[in-house]
Amino acid sequence: MPGIVIIRREGNIQEMVNMMPTIKDVAKLANVSPSTVSRVIANNPRISNKTKEIVNDAMEKLGYHPNFTARSLASKSTQTIGLVMPSSGEKVLQNPFFPEVIRGISTKSHENRYGLYMTTGNTEDEILEGVYELVQGRRIDGLILLYSQVNDRMMSYLLDKGFPFTVIGKPFQNENQITYVDNDNVKAAFEATSYLTELGHERIAFVGGGMELVVTIDRLEGYRKAMESASIAVREDYIGHHEFLREGGREAIEKLINLDAPPTGLVVTDDVMAFGIVNTLEQMGLKVPQDTSLVSFNNVIFSELATPSLTSVDINIFRLGYEAAQCLFEKINQAELPPRRITIPHQLVVRDSCRRV
């Protein structure tokens, strides 16, 4: 039987015959062709889920494990996709958004039996150089960009090369040529700001990331539209741009709290920045929401556990990653597919960080 090591002893001679299962053995047990087994292993989208289940069950019964190295050589596929971070891994991984979005990508990649290769750099040039090496050396089959920024040289390069890639975030340019996954960030920020105006707040500040990031541009637009809708004038000194880190939140609130009329409400575009704001206010002898109400974004796992628990926009981070990977594998398998736009739903989760004025 396949998978059994048979030992024969004839006098002083010990002969080992290793009969490992093959694709043909799997095909015979599953009652399909060997080529169908190969397509199942490659997770070909044209194979039905029922056939995949039958073939996978046969592989498990036989103890068959695909030789991915050999298959990669034969198909000229690396069985690996690349992830492009916005900055150095040390900084990026301080924000729980990225581990969660990578978990979504990793889950889909595991389903497709693909590995992940992460590239980071301390500067944009370093990140670009890393991507050039991956693409020109054909060390990966496709790329997922975990951010979108204004005048992105990387997207232009990948489009020019015709290399498969998807983006988490709306592209600033060439939107109709690029497959991307994003939330409706204008609408989400409009709803977050409107929640504060409905509670009676008029002095509402916006704390976002850098204006080179498309997500900041969109959320700032949503904030402005909500203020206009509530007939509240926007104070430009209420708008700040900082890193998506606790230090960024600390810098933001230190400036805002020293204004002639400090804001009573804050729209903060990242939970980690919000934690920095809450901690800094406490050190100043102020409290959320008694002195300042706060709505943030991402709804990471410890938003609910914070004191006070944060009212936050849940943007379905895991699903952003999962769908981006799904789109990339479709592009890898069918290069002729037209670009797609996937909008992931969001939800405002109301907790304890806001109060009515």
Rank of each mutant, 00 (worst) to 15 (best):
A27F: 12
Y180V: 10
R341E: 14
D25W: 02
D25Y: 05
L281F: 11
S35G: 13
F275H: 04
V350L: 09
P338T: 06
E236D: 15
E126W: 03
G249Y: 07
K161G: 08
T51K: 03
V215P: 00
Y180S: 13
T343M: 12
Q334D: 14
V92F: 05
G137I: 07
G89Q: 11
I81C: 04
S75R: 00
Q347D: 12
E254H: 10
N258G: 11
E282G: 13
M1K: 14
I317E: 00
E304I: 04
I54V: 15
Q94T: 13
F318G: 10
F98Q: 03
S156G: 11
L337E: 13
T36K: 03
E202N: 13
L337D: 03
L305I: 12
G137S: 09
G142P: 11
D152L: 07
V186L: 10
T216W: 03
M59A: 05
L134I: 08
A74Y: 11
P171F: 07
R9D: 04
T179D: 02
P308I: 01
Y195S: 09
T36A: 15
P263W: 04
E323V: 15
A30I: 06
L294R: 01
Q334Y: 08
S156L: 14
Y238W: 07
L159W: 07
M154C: 10
F206G: 01
N56H: 11
V135N: 05
P171G: 07
K50L: 11
R39V: 13
N174V: 12
N279I: 02
G104N: 07
A252N: 03
T264M: 05
I344D: 02
N12A: 09
R355V: 11
N183I: 15
S38Q: 04
A27M: 09
N18D: 10
E236H: 09
R219Q: 11
Y114E: 01
V278L: 01
P308W: 04
E100A: 10
Y157L: 11
F172D: 14
H242D: 09
M16A: 08
I317A: 09
A306D: 01
A74V: 12
P164N: 08
E330A: 08
I140T: 01
S229Q: 12
I102D: 00
